[in-house]
């Protein structure tokens, strides 16, 4: 071949290097270049997790220690984010508050995914269950999730566990609907029919053929639920229906700073920034995962 190629005819000029030399990128830089949202989101979430875990070692003091003499101090070298109306260090409270937000966000994402998958798979496989259960899910979804969470919190006493349970109940119908849809389309796939023809039992089909193929969509949905759960938690705390006031959570800090926000805006400002950045980070991560795992999902979620 090469002997007869035009480029090798005597006298013909060799091809100029019109194509730029491909840049040699490392594997890591290549990943950053292709999925910037995953990297940025992941890094920010990583920072938040770091703050939550190492809150006691980040120059914080006891976030619940009262110091009435030093109340409503402006941010300074001693009190980085200032102090609130009871003299508590806002910086320490914000750092410790990340624990509540992340705990609630991740727990709700996990519990809602498990519960939603369970119900979605059952509804997708058993037609008689499907009709009843999906109408109940429709009913739950027709109530705004924040209202449902408030109502559920009104029934119990304020605690972090109860907040997690309430938000999970408000969020899981979305997962069950997604999983049911996926199951309905996956069970028609030829490889599932081939598995049935190969004598595979239904539980094995669900475990080996259906669930692994819902995982990508489920992970993406879970990140969005995580973000929305953090906002719901902050909202609940802000209106006093969430975590008990003694627990420093971003919603609580903002609720307490609300009365003074015109004169001392920093009390609200710092927890709000942290909440926004965390939610943005989780959403970026989810967006990036969605694009990376399956571009077709973009329309479904």
């Amino acid at each position: 071949m090469s002997a007869t190629a035009p480029g090798h005819v005597a006298g013909a000029p060799t091809l100029p290097a019109i194509l730029p030399v491909p840049k040699q990128r490392g594997r890591i830089m290549g990943f950053v270049y292709r999925h910037p949202t995953i990297v940025i989101g992941g890094l920010l979430v990583g920072v938040m997790i770091f703050i939550a875990i190492f809150a006691p070692y980040l120059g914080t003091t006891d976030p619940t220690a009262l110091a009435p003499a030093k109340r409503t101090r402006e941010p300074s070298a001693i009190y980085w984010f200032g102090t609130d109306m009871l003299g508590r260090d806002v910086y320490s409270r914000v750092m410790y508050g990340s624990r509540v937000s992340l705990l609630v966000g991740f727990s709700v994402a996990f519990c809602a995914s498990i519960l939603g998958t369970l119900i979605g798979v059952v509804a997708g496989f058993i037609r008689s269950v499907d009709a009843v259960v999906m109408r109940i899910m429709d009913g739950l979804m027709s109530i705004p999730s924040i209202l449902l969470a408030i109502a559920l919190m009104a029934l119990t006493r304020a605690s972090v566990q109860n907040v997690i349970v309430a938000i999970t109940i408000a969020e899981f119908p979305r997962v069950s609907r997604l999983v049911r849809g996926l199951v309905l389309s996956l069970r028609e796939q030829p490889y599932v029919e081939a598995a049935i023809a190969s004598g595979t039992r239904v539980p094995v089909i669900i475990w080996k053929h259906i669930l692994p193929n819902t995982l990508a969509a489920l992970m993406v949905q879970a990140t969005f639920i995580c973000a929305s759960a953090m906002i719901t938690e902050a909202t609940l705390s802000f209106i006093g229906a969430g975590t008990p006031p003694i627990v420093p959570s971003w919603g609580n800090i903002m609720a307490e700073g609300r009365a003074l926000w015109q004169v001392k805006p920093y009390i609200v400002f710092f927890p709000a920034i942290f909440l926004s950045v965390t939610v943005l980070a989780v959403n970026l991560l989810g967006d990036g995962l969605r694009d990376a795992l399956d571009p077709r999902l973009a329309k479904r979620l």
Partner: peptide, 13 residues
């Protein structure tokens, strides 16, 4: 009784 499907892409998990 076994089966071979049309689409070689969707017939394998």
């Amino acid at each position: 009784v076994q089966v071979v499907f049309q689409d070689p892409f969707s017939s394998l998990n």
